[in-house]
Amino acid sequence: MNRWLHTAASLCLGVLCLLPLGARAQAFPDHPVRLVVPFPPGGTTDILARMLGNALGTEWKQPVVIENKPGASGTIFSEQLARTPADGYTLMVTATHHVINPALYKNLRYDSRKDFTAVAQVAAVPNVLVVNPDFAARNQINSVADLIAYAKANPGKVNFGSAGTGGANHLSGELFKSMTGVSMVHIPYKGAAPALNDLLGGQIPIMFDSVPGVLQHIKAGKLRALAVTSLTRSAALPDVPTMDEAGVKGFEATAWFGLYAPGNMDPKLLAKISGDVLAALRSPSIQEQFAQQGALPGTMTQPEYASFVNAEMDKWAKVVNDAQITIQ
């Protein structure tokens, strides 16, 4: 009897393997899915990935397991993902770093355009310039204008932290420096969460970070928000001016987050996963959760997102090269 069951199971498995790709795509997933964040826990990428993972787990009726695999601005796990089977069971949620890294790292052991499949844009969020309240009170910094005046009076003595060299929050700081003429020192960290911890502890005085990553600390009075980096105010911080309103005219630096899979994914499986992600992002639950974090859910189709990713690589390559930014 047991031998008969074993034979029957083997035959069933063989039949499943012979199913057309479209049928197998529709059956996806039939076991847990790994959703990897290539940054430490607690940052914006991690927050959004966990919200998306919960929604997809409900849709797929399979566990979506969040794993944090930080290192080298996301490049360490990106290299692993590039060598993973494109079966949909290992996916990555990462930040704008992914399209900036090719310009920063000259010896990446993967091809950023060929070795990944751009599945869906998860969210777009403005950064916000935040200051440690003790530093602000001690130096009478209550606005962007106050910060500019202080930095000009103390060249090279104001440090700003970031999640790592070349990331969206680092480039926000570099743009601020170039547009205001201030001299500040960049302090890169291995992720947004460690930088935020030092900002809260007073080891660094200011930081550009995404709204979701610092919103709870702003509301608790542990950080003071001076301005958001989008051209319109954030719904999560309606009383905080834009950088443009605060006097730095035309300033705009918005971060975005995306879902990736290994390259050469079967088109039917890609359509299945991207469609499920877009459906999850349209759900009232995700809309409300993202709004509370100051994030706008992605709405691009998969081809639109793939085109957007390629354009972003070109744009940030020029910014990095013009600013002569290098990995320290």
Rank of each mutant, 00 (worst) to 15 (best):
M1P: 13
C12E: 03
L13R: 05
G14W: 07
V15G: 02
V15A: 11
P20Q: 09
L21T: 07
G22Q: 08
A23N: 00
R24D: 07
A25S: 11
Q26L: 15
H31Q: 13
V37L: 05
P38F: 08
T45H: 03
M51I: 14
M51Y: 09
G53C: 14
G57H: 08
G71E: 04
A72S: 06
I76G: 04
I76A: 12
I76D: 15
F77Y: 13
F77P: 04
E79V: 02
E79K: 14
Q80I: 14
T84L: 07
Y89K: 04
T90P: 06
L91W: 14
L91E: 05
M92I: 02
M92L: 14
M92C: 12
V93F: 05
T94I: 08
T94V: 08
T94D: 01
T96R: 10
V99K: 00
V99T: 12
I100W: 04
P102G: 00
A103D: 07
L104W: 00
L104Y: 05
K106T: 11
N107G: 06
S112D: 12
A118P: 00
A120W: 01
A120H: 07
Q121N: 08
P126T: 11
V128M: 07
V131F: 00
P133K: 05
D134F: 15
F135Y: 13
A136K: 03
A137W: 07
R138M: 03
S143T: 12
A145K: 12
A145D: 09
A149T: 08
N154Y: 00
K157W: 01
K157A: 03
F160P: 09
E174P: 06
L175S: 12
M179K: 10
V182D: 07
V182C: 08
S183E: 15
I187F: 02
I187A: 02
P188H: 10
P188N: 07
A192Q: 11
P194Q: 10
L196T: 09
L196V: 02
D198L: 03
D198N: 14
L199D: 09
L200T: 09
F208M: 12
V211E: 10
V211K: 14
V214M: 06
L215H: 12
I218N: 00
I218A: 01
K219H: 13
G221I: 05
R224G: 05
A225L: 01
V228F: 10
V228T: 11
T229Y: 13
T232S: 14
R233L: 01
A235W: 03
A235S: 15
A236L: 14
L237G: 04
L237T: 03
P238W: 09
M243K: 08
A246C: 04
A253K: 15
A255H: 05
L259H: 03
Y260D: 06
M265H: 08
D266L: 09
L269E: 03
L270T: 02
L270K: 13
A271E: 12
I273Q: 04
D276K: 01
L278N: 10
R282F: 02
R282G: 06
S285E: 14
S285D: 13
P297M: 01
P297Y: 08
T299G: 04
T299C: 06
P303C: 08
Y305H: 10
S307D: 15
S307G: 10
V309R: 12
W316L: 10
A317L: 05
A317V: 00
V319C: 00
V319I: 12
D322C: 03
D322N: 12
Q328C: 02
